[in-house]
Write a protein that binds this DNA or RNA. Structure first.
Lengths: 225, 225
DNA sequence: CCGTACAATGATGTGTACAACAAATGAAGC
DNA sequence: GCTTCATTTGTTGTACACATCATTGTACGG
């Protein structure tokens, strides 16, 4: 077993990335629901540092639109209004399709292995639906699909918009258990269809399937709300 | 003459926005060329504040990919490698066209006035080319055109990518005086063509013209380099 | 003359105390 | 009982001193 060098000598950059990634996950997996106040002091204590470096993370998250700091009041996880949400989803549709056009590449052996593992997790969720595991799987699958394009700026933007909006969709899914079973079922079909498209090497089709599912999941959310 | 309330009571937020906008402009207008080191102490002194709030601005700019801080070395204005630049321009092409599709709106009276003023500035540059004024006009025109779409996330992304890449293009234009005259000429035609398209209410055509010019200007830069 | 170790220097990163601000609280006045 | 305002409390924002890191110059040994 090799030793992770970042574990032994956690540089400033590593600490920052770690905290940023951790807090972002908590926000996007609804550990911190929209409206939640994030205590600088409490978080700093949890990570074993002072407020100063933690604030740096919060400033970054604020730049990504995930939190908002108000002087004398607190730092809050942002909510997204229906109007902005609609606009963002319209944009995500187009961008999803773009990933199949700009610098699209077929999965390599590693990615195939990862996709198969994700598919297995999806199957497992069918028989035993679980909100939290569904949220994690959804995120992991999205991140994995981004590896199908080599266009880095496009990747960054898709990821950014995903983190900004999917948590709102998740919130509405988490609200009722019935919808969760439906969503898991739909999601498993999406995974299945996309893998089929990738198996025959049709990257554009894969992106179109993804586009369709983004569109439909937003529509289901709109009706549910 | 009304009094600007932000002048009398500059809150923390106002100060932050002001500094962020100012430094971003300096980077994008090449006052701070790629590779330049930004001294936290010097900038803090210039704005009359301590390093702490200034660092907040730098962290934001780092999140936008305009600067990069290295512990013990300095904070530097980023350069963009040709590979990433190519990918970004490919993306900007598609996004420019998207602005003509997602939430496109015709200019209102205020915007028309602004566009006419920009056109006049462009004409003035034809007879008296000036690198700095060209850079400012180019930026102002781009920002003005963004008002043609109501899709806020799309706006943000286009603006972000513009600030990230146009300074690199400007750098190559600034390198030789001959190219500047050419670029000013091409730019004036772009302004003219887009205004014509807008006059007949063809928003999609306007976005296509913009797309074409982004593509061609990148091609000219590639050959010039 | 060359290479290496090491100290000096200057940069960003961090910890801490305090200021500025907004909301909650309580008592005084009507 | 209700309103109003001063006070208290808790939060983010700021200033400053210090730690940490990377570079550079220098002296020493070969």
């Amino acid at each position: 077993m090799n030793i992770d060098p970042t574990e032994l000598a956690p540089s400033a950059r590593d600490r920052f990335d770690r905290m940023h990634s951790e807090i972002r996950s908590r926000i996007c997996l609804l550990d911190y629901a929209p409206g939640t106040r994030l205590s600088e002091e409490a978080l700093a204590a949890e990570f074993g540092i002072s407020r100063t470096p933690l604030r740096r993370v919060l400033v970054r998250l604020e730049g990504e639109g995930l939190v908002q700091s108000v002087h004398g009041v607190g730092t809050f996880v942002t909510d997204v209004k229906i109007a902005e949400l609609t606009q963002t989803y319209q944009l995500r549709l187009e961008l999803a399709e773009l990933t199949g056009k700009l610098g699209a590449v077929a999965p390599d052996a590693t990615l195939w292995q990862e996709l198969r593992a994700l598919s297995a997790r999806s199957k497992a969720l069918l028989t035993d639906p679980d909100a939290r595991r569904f949220a994690e799987l959804n995120m992991d699958f999205f991140i994995a699909l981004l590896k199908l394009t080599t266009n880095e700026p496009l990747k960054d933007i898709c990821e950014r918009l995903y983190f900004k909006t999917t948590r709102i969709w998740l919130k509405s899914v988490f609200a009722s258990k019935i919808d969760l079973a439906d969503e898991v079922d739909v999601f498993d079909r999406e995974v299945h269809d996309i893998l089929r498209a990738l198996e025959i090497g049709d990257l554009h089709a894969a992106s179109l399937i993804q586009r369709a599912h983004i569109s439909m999941s937003f529509e289901r959310m709109r009706r549910g709300t």
